[in-house]
Nucleic acid binder design. Structure first.
Length: 309
DNA sequence: AACATAGCCGTCACAACTTG
DNA sequence: CAAGTTGTGACGGCTATGTT
């Protein structure tokens, strides 16, 4: 890890995921994950759901503005922004919202904010079940379309995991790679892969990332729980190359276990705040995954005497 | 040994209920 | 009567437990 750097040399642009706890608890609340039930779609119609998407997007604009005022320029967008957009039956196209998406994307660009996405655990490109793979492809296409309509640059990536093992890792990885190559260019160019804490560690996904030119999001916490055998410096060197080869800014994830967690299952749950920030010698964007969200970022700002208002 | 079932993961909406 | 609480469903796969 090395010594803590001087405040002026703090190497990371820090971000948080999806939800701002202060704005979420405000009156009226500001958040990006309004959703509905399928039964509600039947009674109120798809227009109702699409209006929820508009409202979520309007609140994303507020989050970006708030972040700018508080020294944060890195944010993961909620995957629930447009409810059921990638649903098999009730799915819909985002072009109904093109002008609003452009507007928010332009704001992010103007303020030099990086917006990323992390489609959910149900995205399993390597699944042996056709239905699961097709649902994954729809969800990835939805996220890519959202970013495309916002006209975000290639730093705006969407992160998924390799997924389940399905009794055979090599066959699953082969399916993952074949499905990846079958997807449209705009999806392939946004997709990046993250090491997980249970099934696929960093060294197990590096070969896929290197073969297909996919940037690898290194998650420090997952790596601590599922480290593999390769030395950390070799891993970090190869991970970094997956980003420089693509020509975009590297991002990593950092989180910590809830205090007192003993078993692996307990250690998977995130703490409210983080107390350490890993130093890797590179200037990267670091996504802080902690329950206290933006408040956890502020704690790090305090620790390193980084000003924010 | 093979298969079936329940609970879990995370976060919200929404209805029904309880409390002040 | 407003505000707060509880339970369930949305979503698919993993893990543990139970059954044959």
């Amino acid at each position: 890890m090395g010594p803590a750097p001087l405040p002026s040399g703090f190497p990371y642009r820090l971000g948080y995921a999806c939800l701002n706890s202060q704005l979420r608890n405000a009156k009226p609340p500001v958040f990006c994950s309004r959703t509905a039930r399928i039964a509600t779609i039947a009674t109120k119609g798809l227009e109702y759901v699409k209006a929820l998407g508009r409202q979520n997007l309007a609140d994303l604009e507020q989050l970006i503005t708030w972040n700018e005022e508080h020294g944060i320029r890195f944010l993961r967008m909620s995957s629930d922004m447009f409810p059921f957009a990638s649903h098999d039956v009730y799915g819909y196209d985002l072009t109904y919202c093109t002008s609003e998406l452009q507007r928010v994307g332009a704001l992010a660009k103007e303020l030099d904010h990086r917006l990323t996405a992390h489609p959910g655990q149900t995205n399993n490109l390597g699944s042996p079940t056709r239905k699961v793979v097709e649902a994954t492809k729809r969800d990835l296409a939805y996220h890519a379309q959202m970013m495309d309509l916002m006209e975000l640059d290639h730093d705006s990536v969407m992160i998924i995991h390799m997924g389940g093992v399905y009794t055979n890792k090599a066959e699953t990885i082969a399916r993952f790679e074949a499905e990846f190559l079958s997807m449209p260019r705009n999806v392939r160019h946004r997709l990046v892969v993250e090491n997980d804490e249970v099934c696929y560690n960093t060294e197990e996904i590096l070969p896929t990332c290197e073969r297909l030119g996919i940037p690898l999001v290194f998650d420090w916490h997952h790596h601590a729980l599922n480290p593999g055998a390769l030395p950390l410096d070799e891993i970090l060197h190869r991970v970094k190359a997956t980003w420089t080869n693509r020509g975009i800014r590297q991002k990593m994830h950092y989180s910590e276990s809830r205090p007192g967690a003993a078993s692996v299952a307990e250690r998977r749950a995130h703490s409210d705040f983080v107390t350490n920030v890993p130093m890797c010698g590179d200037e990267v964007d670091l996504m802080i995954e902690a329950k206290a969200k933006e408040q956890a970022v502020f704690r790090i700002f305090d620790k390193y005497s980084i000003p924010y208002s």
